[in-house]
Write a protein that binds this DNA or RNA. Structure first.
Lengths: 342, 342
DNA sequence: TTGTAGGCGTTATCAA
DNA sequence: TTGATAACGCCTACAA
């Protein structure tokens, strides 16, 4: 049955007319019910129900000048890391009575820009964003346009925004220190593109730890990938297996868990014992890591906390005119599981 | 540096003033640039840039009566199945010049209701929703309020909405037929709660196939779970292992891939050969299924197509006043992989 | 080609 | 307690 209403949605004026009151009273029923007598309030509410009244948020916002929504422009909706961050942001928003909407840029600068532009036009209270390129001009343009923006899981060369991130250099160090402790003297770093700040940081931390252990630099083999997904992880596994056994690493530190899952899949398929012959450490500690066939050790990042902190910074900026940008850096920790523990 | 603008965002009036033209001209530059001479257009655009003008979408929408956004209220942002559906919807929206926003209900009726209410107030062009309870009253209230709504991946007892779903009875049949073909005569159905329409349908299909093969009803063992996630899958694996070996199923059909992943994880951990001693078939064919340590056979559902079809139905409803609700049912197909192929 | 003015639906101020 | 009215920022006739 295609029941579609022909008439436009009822407005406060319509409600006022059928309830026999003024629009002001209807508005009061909506916004300060206590200022209205019980009798008329009931009458108005009945009229609203009869007419199927739905308040027009555009008009409300235009007049009141205040929005009830927050937005998070995500890089990749398919990566559980980001959806966990979103959950954290959602919980912070909810406890403040705000609604969080998610937009996906799918790593595309144009989509990101389109989403952000529309959100600004909608005058959302603020925008969280994990940008395709944290130093891009699009973001720079945002500054000073009045919409608070917080950058999530990225840092930026200048200090034009609040940022919330994790100390990835430390994360890389933790992973490699763990492998060194377990006696590995030949380790692969799997990740890329190396141009990504995140990846570069993790590699730097890895190298720091490697050097601190007094191991020769060339024994930390870098396998660069073109993306941070499962497919690339599998391919890295193949490349690893193709190395001559003398020079083949006995452990791999992957720049994220999707790579680690791919690597593990290749190892299992090829009959390579994990961790017996190849130990694996991932990064992020997404749920699928601990739930893999061989539970994967991973550098845990506080995902929901990241989202929550970002939302809080955003609201602080929205509320406080004298706001100064802050840069929150969370500390990662290693979660050791079977994949690296023999 | 906390550079926060004190002054409110510039309006068309401000732009008009600094460009030395009227507001009508500014509006024309925005909406019909061809109606404006190149010279004044340039002057206006310069003024907009100087002032950091951002058009107020609330005002635009209030006046024009038309929104540029679509919304998808998702059940579980952490399940890759739904994020793939969202991707499909996003691509449809994008090709129509609309923006898609995502909201997560996290399987909570109250959140779902809050999101939907706000979206309606915002007069979005339409709402896609995978509801917590497809027969709930909240949805019924939506009907006739003017906002087109399409139900995704659920069906409903009445025909008050367009729906887009997959033939889950057939899906269940395909899974079990496959296992019967492979010679299994004792199979477990893992899924729940059985009250969920989806789960019930898949079980029904499974039973149909089982009966058609002439196998005794009690040899299809039902292991009910409390949710459709990895943890429950692991637990089901434990329960399966605890059965006496004579009556233990040699194969399991899981109501979704997260359960299948959990089940596989338990099997690998317990040293149970898959598929040698336990064959596994999942449902949905999310990316992680094929990428598991033992690639998991799964009943593939067209995820992106589902989202795309839903978005198209929604826009049809929004555009056509004489719209009649339709019910699209996609056909699933079995993807056989190692986990069931010996 | 550009300017003027009315109104979209709501809220808030001020009277009554 | 309730009613009348003036914005909010934009778009679109209609006039000039």
């Amino acid at each position: 049955m295609g029941i579609t209403r022909a008439e436009p949605i009822a407005s406060v004026k319509d409600v006022a007319a059928t309830a026999g009151v003024s629009v002001g009273t209807v508005s009061n029923v909506l916004n300060r019910p206590d200022r209205v007598s019980a009798a008329t309030r009931a009458r108005v509410q009945e009229a609203m129900a009869d007419l199927g009244f739905v308040r027009n948020e555009s008009a409300r916002q235009l007049r009141a000048g205040t929005s009830r929504t927050l937005a998070y422009v995500m890089l990749d909706i398919g990566n559980p890391f980001f959806t966990d961050v979103a959950r954290g942001a959602e919980s912070a928003a909810e406890s403040l009575g705000l609604s969080l909407v998610l937009c996906s840029s799918a790593s595309t600068a144009a989509r990101e820009a389109a989403h952000i532009a529309l959100l600004q036009q909608q005058r959302v209270q603020g925008i969280l964003v994990t940008p395709v390129d944290p130093d891009a001009a699009v973001l720079r343009d945002l500054r000073g346009n009045g919409t608070p923006v917080v950058i999530v899981d990225r840092t930026r060369s200048d200090s034009a925004f609040c940022t919330v991130a994790v100390d990835d250099v430390l994360g890389g160090r933790l992973a490699v220190e763990h492998l060194v402790d377990r006696g590995h003297t030949r380790v692969a770093f799997v990740g890329g593109p190396l141009g990504l700040g995140q990846v570069a940081d993790r590699l730097r931390g890895a190298r720091d730890a490697w050097a601190a252990a007094g191991l020769p630099r060339e024994a930390l083999v870098v396998l660069e990938t073109t993306a941070l997904d499962v497919t690339e992880g599998r391919y890295a596994g193949q490349r690893l297996a193709d190395l001559p056994s003398r020079s083949r690493p006995t452990a791999a530190f992957c720049a994220n868990d999707l790579l680690a899952l791919g690597l593990l899949q290749h190892a299992v398929g090829a009959g390579t014992p994990v961790p017996g012959r190849l130990a694996i450490v991932g990064y992020d500690d997404i749920g699928f890591a601990g739930a893999a066939a061989v539970p994967i050790s991973s550098v845990r990042r506080p995902r929901e906390e990241l989202g929550r902190a970002a939302a809080e910074l955003l609201l602080d900026e929205a509320a406080d005119p004298g706001h100064r940008h802050r840069h929150v850096l969370f500390t990662p920790e290693l979660v050791a599981r079977t994949s690296s523990l023999g």
